[in-house]
Amino acid sequence: MKSGAIRRLAVGLAVTVAAGVLGVAVPGQAQAAGSSCEGRKVRTFPFETGTVEVYRRGGYVCAVTLPKRPGVRQYMRVSLRAYALQPVEDAGRYKYRAGPVTVHAGQRKLWIKGAVGRGTFDTEGWIRL
């Protein structure tokens, strides 16, 4: 390979990695931009004040918490943890959703939590999707 091709490959790889890191490390920014989870919906967990929706695409799992009453600014949280990894969480006062949060789970078990106002959801243990 010539040095120009190597340089273009290195720059392309750096941009791809940076975009992936920003998408996982700053879930609040992704939510503000209006994006949502990609892939197919694999589970829906309803609770008294909202719903946690879980999506899967390849080895990645994404989750969002949706309120039963959208449009009202209220506390919301979504947390997604793959076995043996740190949880990824988005929490704050939102109108429409908390998240999306994404982890590379592969075939690992997951622990999922969500909240809207005083209502909460917790898988209360590790689950497989």
Rank of each mutant, 00 (worst) to 15 (best):
G20D: 05
A33F: 06
V11Y: 06
V17Q: 03
A25L: 09
K41T: 10
V11Q: 12
G28V: 11
A25T: 05
T16E: 01
E38P: 05
G23S: 10
V17A: 03
I6E: 03
S36W: 05
A32Y: 03
G34F: 09
E38G: 15
P27Y: 02
A10K: 09
T16A: 09
R40E: 15
Q29T: 13
T16W: 04
A10E: 10
A30V: 13
A19Q: 11
G20H: 03
V21C: 04
G23H: 02
E38K: 13
G20N: 04
Q31N: 15
V15G: 02
G20K: 02
V11C: 11
R43L: 15
V26D: 14
G23F: 01
G4Y: 12
Q31E: 13
V11W: 03
L9M: 15
A14Q: 05
A18Q: 00
V26K: 05
G28Q: 10
K41Q: 14
A25E: 08
S35E: 11
A19K: 00
V17L: 01
A19I: 15
G39Q: 09
A30C: 06
A14E: 05
C37I: 10
A14F: 12
E38Y: 05
T16H: 02
K41F: 01
G4T: 15
A14M: 07
G39S: 04
V42H: 00
G4W: 12
A30H: 04
G28F: 06
A19L: 09
S36H: 11
G28M: 11
V11F: 07
A18E: 04
A32Q: 03
L22V: 12
R7S: 08
L22A: 13
G28K: 08
V26P: 00
A19V: 15
G34L: 07
T16N: 05
R8Q: 11
T16G: 06
A33Q: 12
Q29R: 08
A32E: 09
R43H: 03
R40C: 04
R43S: 13
G12H: 04
A33G: 08
G39F: 08
I6K: 12
A5L: 10
S35T: 09
V17K: 04
V26A: 14
R43W: 07
V17S: 00
A10H: 03
